[in-house]
């Protein structure tokens, strides 16, 4: 029997449409569950007070601060490295065997699972370099982990800057570095910013690599060498050890809302770039 192709076409269209909305539906359901279950225990005082009794009572202030410290430090380390690499690859060299090797390194780093980063950070920073479970160990591990994201997004943003702008800058007597700083980077800034924000999101949501390098102390880290706990780690421990489902949901709410906010902001920034160049 031969089915009318138009009929098949309409059927497939509806089926694919269904799949797309089902997938978006998953996101909506996840956020909805977290929101409904978490909102009753989530308040300003929950965010601003210290936990008591392993997190069974009280708030998550140290975990929020631990998250902020970890994300901020990793960005501070990774941005110069990543942006520098992207500038080197796009402005200071031609495609060669060398760039192929560097790109291979970046791609490989991007594919390594977070637990391997955890293993590495644990043996290298925590044990061999004697940094112990600390904010610094965690931040350095996260730095390596988010580096590929920053390199890739920066490289793409820099490549999108029209070549003519560089030519003009050179013709006006600018050196390569002056051209890069004054013309290329300002035009690429939104794209670079997108990469940075996506990386922040990654650092905020990461657990496996953080728990073995930064540890899980519930105190507010007072120095780089102090252990601390991020929201994701706190949430994992609350849920896994069955300490408190209410607090776990509330923590998840803060966690998910911050990550969604960061990601939406990143997406919005990127769209502005696309609008600018097309």
């Amino acid at each position: 029997m031969r089915v009318n192709p138009r009929f098949t076409d309409a059927l497939v269209r509806h089926f694919l449409n269904l799949q797309a909305y089902f997938t978006v539906g998953l996101l909506v359901v996840i956020v909805f569950i977290i929101f409904i279950k978490g909102i009753s225990n989530c308040s300003l005082s929950f965010m601003l007070t210290y936990p008591e009794d392993m997190g069974r009572h009280g708030g998550i202030f140290p975990a929020i601060m631990g998250t902020v410290f970890l994300a901020a430090l990793s960005i501070v380390f990774a941005t110069p490295l990543g942006l520098g690499t992207a500038i080197y690859l796009t402005e200071y060299t031609r495609e060669s065997r060398l760039t192929t090797i560097i790109r291979f390194g970046v791609e490989s780093l991007a594919g390594i699972p977070s637990i391997i980063y955890g293993l590495f950070g644990f043996i290298f920073f925590v044990i061999k370099l004697g940094m112990g479970w600390s904010l610094l160990s965690g931040a350095l591990t996260m730095t390596i982990m988010i580096l590929p994201t920053i390199i890739r997004t920066s490289e793409e943003a820099i490549k999108a800057v029209p070549r003519n702008l560089r030519i003009v800058s050179h013709s006006l007597g600018a050196t390569k570095w002056e051209t890069t700083v004054k013309v290329v980077l300002p035009s690429a800034a939104p794209g670079i910013l997108t990469g940075i924000m996506l990386s922040i999101g990654r650092a905020v949501g990461e657990t496996a690599a953080v728990i073995f390098t930064m540890g899980s102390s519930l105190r507010l880290p007072a120095s780089l060498m102090d252990s601390g706990r991020t929201m994701a780690v706190h949430f994992y421990i609350l849920a896994r050890e069955g300490i408190s489902m209410e607090k776990a949901y509330a923590t998840a709410l803060v966690l998910v809302v911050s990550i969604l906010a960061i990601n939406i902001l990143a997406y919005y920034t990127m769209n502005r770039v696309i609008a600018k160049y097309s």
């Binding site: 003519n164 702008l165 013709s171 600018a174």
Partner: peptide
């Protein structure tokens, strides 16, 4: 070369203002 380009100004075929 940088010094040279300050002595030799160029106007290109298409107007290329910086943003």
């Amino acid at each position: 070369v940088v010094g040279l380009r300050r002595r030799v100004g160029t106007v290109f075929a298409v107007p290329l203002p910086l943003p």
